[in-house]
Write a protein that binds this DNA or RNA. Structure first.
Lengths: 245, 245
DNA sequence: ATCGGCACTTGACGCGGATCAAATTTTGCG
DNA sequence: CGCAAAATTTGATCCGCGTCAAGTGCCGAT
């Protein structure tokens, strides 16, 4: 019953082609015409794997490649002057890493694996060459960036407007929806990040996150057992979390 | 002494060419090779003007063009289901509007002028054609989006980590720096937005913003007279606001 | 010049969440 | 399996900020 020890999207061992990849419907090539998808695929370095805790990219490092997570999950964060972590968000399979790097050619935050993780890599050199001749890919990369921007803004709004329970509810609802889009269960999942990570992401303390979860549990909206979550009343969470138009 | 009634970057009436534009060093063409800059310039529709309160783009509207503010300032916001405004930020001369539109081809938030405002316009059709053959412009647009993303994330972090006074201090320091980059005074300026707008941007109430400003005034860090601000001790503001690496 | 309205300031009070502290569960390891 | 360390929960207390409520000053209109 528990998904203990399971990693997000760990389906197949290592894919060799985008065509056979479980992420096909949501990954970069999804919206590309077949011809462009093939050209992109030829540029992709596939199947790299890392262990939990390993850092995929570091702040300040030159942006040598565009990374897309294939399985597992990761934490995006930066370290403040005082040495505390600011958690910007969490990366799920099919999502790109380090897009802010386009700003200066260097990454501006760290990304480290929360579970065993595999990813694909498109070297920037090759990407630029491809952008030269693939109009679909151009549009797709712009779409990706626009989406990331929109999401970041939406999240900022959430932080600005919601109280603690609203933020936690929104966090869960958002995670649930993203998992669903990947064909995973939106109601039964395991959090790969700690309460402290969630708290730093939401601008709360870990105690407050824990209390919010306990409240939801008491209300009968969730079942919570350590990091395993069962969503019993998604509508309730959505109602609390989703104040956006 | 007071800048009353003055609009941000209102220098010349209406420019006819990027070459003569006061924003040349910070606007889109700044980093383009001369040849590409000329090509871009040919596609730009220039000198449109609107009055305060006029909406430049609406949420849901197709993204027909990329807009860059030339003079004046604007407010980016979206309206929540309950009818309240979420203020995402403020646009200064040389900054682009509606980049999140790349996500879906439609704008996702509203932008309205806070003062008399003029702007340039690059129709998306032409932009896409230009992207086809101008590698510098491609890089520049990606840079713009990356920057916007990075900024949005940094801001989110600020919201998550700072208390009320820290947020207001950061807001002022950020504004000050952006004005300076435009060749305007970083210490003497007029806020074009209301306390309520600032509050909604920072996730505070207008009373709290007001109190923060009063505190800074009492501490001798600022002079505040209605919307006119004089920064007396920039370091103090920066120390409060700038927790980022 | 006076009035009315609006943006802003200031004050009083209560609550939500931070902080400090301790109990309890979970996990990793020998 | 059993222990130690880490993660999480729960409890008690305190304070910052939201809320409600008066002012105060500025501007346009008459």
């Amino acid at each position: 019953m528990s998904s203990r020890g399971q990693q997000i999207g760990s389906a197949a061992p290592v894919c060799v082609s985008c065509r056979d990849c479980a992420l096909k419907p949501i990954c970069l090539p999804a919206h590309l015409p077949g011809e462009e998808a093939r050209a992109l695929e030829a540029a992709v370095e596939r199947g790299r794997q890392v262990l939990p805790g390993v850092t995929l990219v570091r702040a300040g490092e030159p942006m040598a490649a565009l990374l897309v997570v294939r399985s597992g999950s990761a934490k995006r964060y930066s370290v403040t002057l005082e040495g505390t972590e600011q958690v910007h968000g969490f990366v799920l399979p099919g999502e790109a890493v380090g897009l802010e790097g386009f700003a200066s050619g260097r990454y501006t935050c760290e990304v480290s694996a929360l579970e065993p993780l595999s990813y694909c890599r498109v070297p920037m050199r090759k990407l630029e060459q491809l952008l030269e001749r693939l109009p679909g890919l151009r549009r797709e990369i712009l779409r990706l960036l626009g989406q990331a921007l929109d999401e970041a803004q939406r999240l900022r709004g959430e932080l600005a407007q919601s109280d603690a329970r609203g933020r936690v509810a929104h966090f869960l609802a958002d995670l649930s929806e993203r998992l669903a889009r990947r064909g995973l269960s939106p109601t039964e999942f395991r959090l790969s990040m700690s309460r402290a990570d969630i708290a730093r992401h939401l601008g709360l303390t870990l105690e407050t996150v824990s209390r919010a979860l306990s409240t939801f549990k008491r209300e009968g909206w969730l079942r919570v057992r350590a990091r395993d979550i069962s969503v019993l009343r998604p509508e309730a969470l959505a109602a609390l979390g989703g104040g956006c138009a």
